[in-house]
Design a binder for these strands. Structure first.
Lengths: 216, 216
DNA sequence: GAGGGAATACCCACTAATGGGTATGGTGGT
DNA sequence: ACCACCATACCCATTAGTGGGTATTCCCTC
């Protein structure tokens, strides 16, 4: 946490030109010292394990192992290297995946070099750093996540509710039909309707949702 | 989206002193016009429905209906009011809940008044705004979410355990295949095997069983 | 070192189950 | 009379589950 001693840095990126650019940028100021460069995920893992750098700059899109896989392995080692993802992707999914896997930062290559440096220092001091736009992406993706998880059972009719219960017991349409004394095809119609109302795609999703709601 | 006309603002907070402070702060500049104040969630809902304000400042911790409940109701109405949560809580859970429920911002009462104003304007222009520290909290809570995954179902191999987990998330064989990078015929084989080992008759039963075990 | 057994992954072919569409009737309530 | 709910029927495409077979790898044992 002392900003006095330069932080050791490992750069993992399969684009040599980019590695060189980072190296130049980062060593101009005295804040970081690049102790290693890797041109692939596999090589990066070796170096990370050998060098225990304070920080690792990790490209997301690489040939061979992609950045998320590399990140997971590094985090599973429990070194205390901070790992910042650096990528051209502004896909919400990639961002969420990276954070779930334990990334300490997620920055875009298209950033201004000065900003990049600022963000790196933030990450070095233990902060999680995202760009403004990514923060928005994140919030947005959370909401998308939330939609299918927030079905409103209020919209279901009694019969649909009963059938949902039976689905949540793992029963097939045929069994449900027998239990309710109605035709097999009728059950299918009700299932179709309740899936629509709950905004779900299959009886398995319905079962999972119902069980989680029942218990959670 | 025009920053020319002042945005109408509704403040919902059960602390009168705080409402007054916001009112003063916000009306000093010409950016917002407070068109209503509510001292409870219930009253806030009435006013929101009647006034259709451009923005709603909503306290999270209130007697009676809490802020999240109020937020959900407002968002279910599909007015196009932007809602910014304002709270003393820096609990990650509250933050995530607010974003999932559709909050357009989440700010802390302990912020500097000037910063608050800046953030409000950001939110007014359609951005999602979080403070720096909250961004970190968010990232952290995502990681916590990621942890609870425990295979090791008795008798199941690793792969079978992984696939059972995915079934318990409601996924189809095709999706599972893509996620694991294997053919979907192979997934079927694993499903067949795990159903046998667990003495179950369908993936729905498997999903129910896994979810119940996970939670109960 | 040769077998045997698990685990993984793939293939083919076949049946059952599921989900979507459309359509027809019969209720009961407003 | 209209509307929501329920029940049924039929058709169609996709998905899921079963059975058989082949292959490779790794590990254990004789």
């Amino acid at each position: 946490m002392s900003p006095d001693t330069p932080q050791t840095l490992l750069v993992i990126d399969d684009h040599p030109l980019f590695r060189k650019a980072v190296l130049q940028l980062v060593e101009m100021t005295g804040d970081f010292q690049v102790v290693g460069e890797a041109s692939s995920g596999e090589q990066g893992l070796e170096l990370a394990q050998g060098l225990h750098p304070d920080m690792i700059l990790l490209d997301l899109n690489m040939k061979g192992m992609n950045g998320i896989e590399v990140l997971k392995v590094i985090k599973s080692w429990d070194l205390d290297s901070r790992v910042v993802m650096l990528t051209v992707s502004d896909e919400a999914g990639d961002l969420v995946a990276a954070l779930r896997a334990g990334a300490d930062g997620y920055l875009l290559k298209e950033m201004e070099p000065e900003d990049l440096l600022v963000k790196l220092k933030e990450a070095a001091s233990g902060q999680v750093t995202l760009t403004e736009r990514l923060t928005r992406l994140l919030a947005h993706s959370l909401r998308e996540d939330a939609l299918p998880k927030a079905p409103d059972q209020a919209g279901l009719t009694e019969q649909e509710g009963r059938i949902l219960d039976l689905i949540a017991q793992g029963k097939s349409n045929k069994l449900i039909a027998r239990e309710l004394g109605i035709a097999d095809g009728t059950v299918k119609v009700h299932v179709k309707h309740l899936l629509r109302k709950l905004n779900l795609r299959s009886r398995v999703e319905a079962a999972v949702w119902a069980v989680e709601k029942r218990q959670g």
